[in-house]
């Protein structure tokens, strides 16, 4: 067990999450899950940028990478007919 400070352990955890998440985005079958995991990976990248005191990049990564691009991906999936949205009136049939 290497002797690391708390901050270094946090870096190790975040880096491992980044690598695992990036692999998961490619491997996972369901496109919706891939989009969500991609957003989570972006959020971890934003945290790493923040801890490395580059707040500008962290903010852009959080807003564009984790927020807007996830929303745009979801919208495109829904336009391509991949997601079946159900309004509340339709109930839960077909599940």
């Amino acid at each position: 067990m290497p002797h690391l400070t708390l901050m270094q352990w946090v870096y190790v955890f975040l880096a491992a999450a980044l690598v695992l998440g990036s692999v998961a985005v490619v491997v996972v079958e369901d496109l919706l899950s891939a989009v969500i995991v991609e957003g989570v990976v972006s959020l971890h990248a934003a945290l790493i940028f923040l801890f490395m005191s580059s707040a500008d990049v962290a903010m852009t990564q959080a807003v564009v990478g984790a927020g807007l691009s996830t929303a745009v991906f979801l919208w495109i999936l829904s336009r391509a007919g991949y997601l079946k949205w159900r309004s509340p009136e339709q109930g839960k049939e077909g599940e």
């Binding site: 707040a55 500008d56 903010m59 852009t60 807003v63 564009v64 927020g67 929303a71």
Partner: peptide, 25 residues
Amino acid sequence: YIFIHGHLTPGGGFPGGAMIAAGTA
């Protein structure tokens, strides 16, 4: 706020504009 204070605090036109677009969405 973010794009008006771009020269004082972190951030600027691009993240601020993206945040506004998120509000529109």
